[in-house]
Amino acid sequence: MSKHTVSIDINGTTVTKEVDSRMLLVHFIREELQMTGTHIGCDTSSCGACTILMNGRSVKSCTLYTVQANGKSVKTIEGMEEGGALHPLQEGFHEEHGLQCGFCTPGMIMRAAELLEKNPNPSEEEIRWGISGNLCRCTGYVNIVKAIQYAAEKMQKEAA
């Protein structure tokens, strides 16, 4: 087993730690950094509960070794609020009742964040395909779609 020192920008703060080569990024975030908003729902990169942003792209942190994130920037749900204000996506999920048990929510929000970054005004169809790697067992997705539409609208207004 090899140990490696990694330096990762997590939500704007650079963290330097020694990790085992096999430590999964999701465990690093949850257990080494005690940021437990990122969840684990499967072992096969199927559910998306562990979704984070790495260099701005949504990735499944259960299917990455921590060493692969060395030198990269990572954003988790804990980094979404800015200046005490909820991100429009967080607000949208609240306003549109886009969450129930809350377990898939952080991953869903991180995935949606990249979706809106790439496509600020997605159709319902594009949203549905866009979150197709994130499973929700509670909401039936209807209100998640609405929550993302809410955020898209708000972000476009803010940008205008």
Partner: peptide, 21 residues
Amino acid sequence: MKRKEDARFLRGQGKYTDDVV
């Protein structure tokens, strides 16, 4: 009424069993 419990879940501050250390 918008849900009271959302406040923690939206911020990744829900406390699930695997979060207990």
